[in-house]
Design a protein around this nucleic acid. Structure first.
Lengths: 386, 386
DNA sequence: CATTCCATAGAACGCGATTACTGTCCGGAG
DNA sequence: CTCCGGACAGTAATCGCGTTCTATGGAATG
């Protein structure tokens, strides 16, 4: 079996169709009303089911009068096509799946918006799942979407570098591909040659480099890197850009200034408070993302430190909270919504399937750039001031 | 036909299956590889399809050895059940639909999270759509979800009081109900007796009353009500609570102090700035929601007014931005995630269908309460100060 | 040895819709 | 007065899986 146990989804009682042998809905029996079917419509309109299907799909000439008879029959019966039957008969069911950590996290929400909008443009619906950071759930959701024959499955966000996990993911990529769907990696590194996937990345390393350099230009040399799960590809890339910038300026890397952790406001707040109490000296903070920066900002505020006068602070992602903080946060802009759009575009190639089966593996890398606001000032040195 | 034209979804070329008469996938022909079916698995494992189905559904005893043979056959073939075929055969497809204005709006995002989590608990997947505030799109999406036979369709957010729209919605409620699904209204008033819907509301009026009263207790008598689309049920209810509080204290209602508009940060900012320049006097602002409050706060700040010293400010919803603003925003807490959870709970009655068909119309009303933070102070009167 | 009970095989339907074929009808050309 | 093609419409085979219902081989039981 190619599926992760459904237990991974925390299903209370996943064996839904168990025991309770449902009474089979007999078309003969009472039950009041059945759902109308094509057959019903056809009978009522005095035509064949083929004709009904034709007016439904507008893919074959049907006489005006006939069409009208059929349409009013549908209306009178309250007929609604059955997408499952249609999918079974070979028509794309027009859905794309998207798997994120958490829908309320703006980072994911913006990407999801892009996916949803682009999908809607192609007349598609969007299946959304939240893994809450659990790779097992992610795999289980991919399976569920495969079962539903989604046109594409977009997996969003950084990934952990785990051997077993990666190969599981690659296998699913192959299975999906064999079935004509596509696995799209959004904001995470590709799986390598063996796996037929599409990918939309952004210049994570470059953004980190740029904003670190921005800090360096202001004279900061002791920069605290705060937050970001250590094993996540996202963290790895941001940290890499950060270090490259430091090295380029000939600044030694102090391990103590690297403080990875969760991508959460709470982590930013607590660790910052701790570090302020008994941590290394630093004059600037590079928060792994804007949410962490918000937490750090609060800790700084409560410690009586002024941003940017005493300490400079920058974030990453450029989500709305960056503009809400005071001072407004200097950060790295990531084209989140665009990533989502491109992800589905890469996978489904527009609304019409004229171009049947193009490059089986597409990749895309979007740019990032820093947004300068008010949270960075020339170095003043917290140590030298207090 | 009971559906709104798909054009409403802005589909670029919605007649996807038109003209391009797809080559029918012949099981006989080449094509390299077909997707494995139950029959394939059965053949490979040397058992019957009935047995395969049994190990798949675990609803009938199967010898351990047989099960293993079947399972490894599935693994080797990369078999993935076809949810459509399964749904067609009468098994619930386990999906719930949710329709919101906008996924990046925290108000909706939190509700969506509740829906998604509760759905996942029941082993269900979640179909998400964004209407961007267009009632036509909302109706079109409901149809699409009905076509997919979602177990439930949750429509989130305030509704406009339009005669035609309401009856269209009611019709869909009936159609869904006839098919065994359910339309759930989340955060909006019921449709009346004629429509079989479930509903989860929150005490919108009460929250507005409470926070207005909070302002009154601090001596504020001239309170500006800012934002909220005028015809939206949400606005109507909040405004009602607000006015009831005013009347209870015998304060005359000044139409000039009622400034409805979009639920956007931008509206809050701009209208606030205008009003500060040439609007009526007021000592407190009741923003229709936290987002509007954020905009208003910026305008106030730029005008050199201090919150709450010069002007008090409150919002509604209690989304994260409320804690990020400085001063932290006093607002009304709405149990958003819980609303989402209850919405699906109301509709699908847990994971197991033991309790077959319960009350066809459930309703629920969750409480709200104010959260006092730092944006309200006793009246100081902007007029008397400047 | 006869009887039961199990696990499973086998086969027929049903689910609802799509569509490759196969007509049928009708008008105009030859 | 045929013949032919275009416009429509009907027939029936699929699609992949779930659900019986009957039949059967063999092990356990008495």
């Amino acid at each position: 079996m190619s599926t992760v146990p459904r237990q991974a989804l925390g299903s209370a009682s996943h064996n839904s169709h168990q025991g309770v042998s449902r009474m089979r809905r007999q078309s003969t029996a009472a039950d009041g009303q059945r759902r109308a079917t094509v057959t019903d419509v056809a009978r009522r309109a005095g035509v064949s089911t083929a004709t009904v299907s034709r007016v439904l799909n507008r893919n074959y000439p049907v006489a005006e009068a006939t069409r009208e008879r059929v349409e009013s029959a549908m209306r009178e019966l309250g007929y609604v096509v059955n997408a499952h039957a249609r999918a079974l008969a070979g028509v794309s069911n027009r859905t794309v799946g998207i798997i994120v950590n958490e829908v309320i996290d703006p980072f994911y929400a913006y990407i999801a918006r892009g996916v949803e909008r682009e999908a809607a443009l192609g007349g598609r619906l969007c299946l959304v799942c939240c893994t809450q950071g659990d790779p097992q759930r992610e795999l289980a959701f991919i399976d569920l979407m495969h079962e539903r024959r989604a046109d594409a499955v977009v997996v969003v966000g950084g990934s952990i570098a785990d051997r077993g996990y990666t190969s599981e993911l690659a296998r699913r990529a192959r299975e999906l591909d064999a079935g004509g769907s596509k696995l799209v990696l959004c904001g995470r590194p590709p799986l390598g040659e063996a796996a037929p996937t599409a990918a939309v990345e952004y210049d994570n390393e470059g953004g980190a480099f740029a904003i670190t350099d921005h800090l360096l230009m202001q004279g900061h040399e002791r920069i605290l890197y705060l937050g970001g799960p250590p094993k996540l590809s996202t963290t790895r890339d941001r940290l890499a850009g950060h270090r490259r910038a430091l090295e380029l300026r000939g600044i030694a890397i102090d391990p103590e200034l690297s403080q990875p952790g969760a991508f959460s406001r709470n982590f930013g707040y607590r660790r910052m408070a701790e570090l302020l109490r008994d941590g290394p000296e630093f004059t600037a903070v590079f928060a792994a993302n804007d949410v962490v920066a918000a937490g750090a900002a609060q800790a700084l505020e409560e410690a009586g430190l002024r941003v940017p006068k005493d300490i400079s602070l920058v974030g990453y992602d450029d989500i709305p909270v960056a503009q809400e903080l005071r001072p407004r946060l200097t950060t790295v802009h990531v084209p989140l919504e665009e990533m989502g759009r491109q992800a589905v575009r890469l996978a489904v190639s527009g609304g019409d399937e004229d171009d049947w089966r193009e490059p089986t593996t597409g990749a895309l890398r979007l740019g990032t750039h820093i947004v300068v606001r008010d949270s960075v000032a020339p170095r003043a040195g917290r140590a030298s001031r207090m």
